[in-house]
C-alpha cells in the first residue's frame, strides 16, 4: 500500500530536500556557534551519504547494513558533538569555541531520538529482508508498507526540529555575543585612548 515503488517521487523528494533545509537553517543560525557546528556536521554527513547513495543501491539485499551504519554515524555526531569539538579544537577555531561554550539543546535530544528510531527501523527491515532471502518468510510487509512512510515522517520531523533549533536563542550564545561585543568595545576604547595619548604626545613635542 505504502510501498516505495508506489510513492517513489514523494519519498525521494523528502529524502533529498533535507540538505537544502540544512543550508537554510545554517544561514539562519549562523550566529549560534553550537547550532552552526551541528549543521555543518550534518551537511557534511549528508554530502557523504548522497555520494554513497549510488554505491549503496548496488548492495541489494545488504542495503540496510549501510543504512544502519550511516544512521549510527549521524547519531554519534549529534550525541557526541562535544567530543568531536574537543578532537578538532586544536585545528578549527569554531570547534575550540564550541568546546569551551558547549550547549546541548532539547531539539538535539529529539533529533538523537529520531536517529535512533531510524536505526531500529533499518535493523527490523534488514532482519525481514534476510528472512525473505533465505525463504523463511514469503512476504516482507514491514519493508514494503511501514519502512518508507516511517522514514519519510522522521525526515520531516527532523527538518522541523532543525528549523526550530535555528530560530531559537540559546543562553550560552547570548552570553557569547554579549562577551564578544564587550571585547570589541574595550578594544575600540583602547584604540581611542592610545590615539588620544599619541596625539597628546605629538602636541607636547611640538
Amino acid at each position: 500500500m505504502f510501498s516505495y515503488e508506489n510513492y517513489k517521487a514523494l519519498y525521494d523528494g523528502v529524502a533529498f530536500f533535507i540538505t537544502p533545509i540544512n543550508f537554510i537553517c545554517l544561514l539562519i543560525a549562523w550566529k549560534s556557534i553550537n547550532t552552526r557546528m551541528l549543521l555543518i556536521s550534518l551537511i557534511t554527513l549528508e554530502a557523504i551519504d548522497t555520494l554513497l547513495t549510488g554505491w549503496s543501491y548496488t548492495l541489494g539485499n545488504n542495503y540496510h547494513f549501510y543504512g544502519v551504519f550511516i544512521c549510527s554515524i549521524f547519531l554519534f555526531t549529534v550525541l557526541f558533538r562535544r567530543l568531536l569539538a574537543k578532537l578538532l579544537s586544536k585545528h578549527v577555531k569554531l570547534c575550540n569555541d564550541v568546546y569551551n561554550n558547549f550547549s546541548f539543546s532539547k531539539q538535539e535530544a529529539a533529533i538523537t531520538f529520531m536517529y535512533f528510531i531510524v536505526v531500529i527501523l533499518h535493523v527490523v527491515a534488514l532482519i525481514e529482508v534476510k528472512l525473505y532471502q533465505y525463504d523463511i518468510i514469503d512476504v516482507f510487509p514491514f519493508r514494503n508498507n511501514v519502512f518508507p512512510p516511517s522514514i519519510t515522517i522522521l525526515h520531516l520531523l527532523e527538518a522541523l526540529m532543525l528549523l526550530k533549533l535555528s530560530i531559537r536563542h540559546l543562553p550560552i550564545d547570548e552570553y557569547l555575543q554579549h562577551f564578544k561585543r564587550r571585547l570589541t568595545n574595550d578594544r575600540k576604547l583602547e584604540g581611542t585612548s592610545s590615539y588620544r595619548s599619541s596625539a597628546e604626545d605629538k602636541k607636547d613635542r611640538s
Binding site: L79, R82, F102, S103, F104, S105, K106, E108, A109
Partner: peptide, 11 residues
C-alpha cells in the same frame, strides 16, 4: 553524562 545534564537544564 554531560549531554543528559544539559538536555535536562535546557528543557
Amino acid at each position: 553524562a554531560v549531554a543528559v545534564k544539559l538536555i535536562r537544564e535546557d528543557s
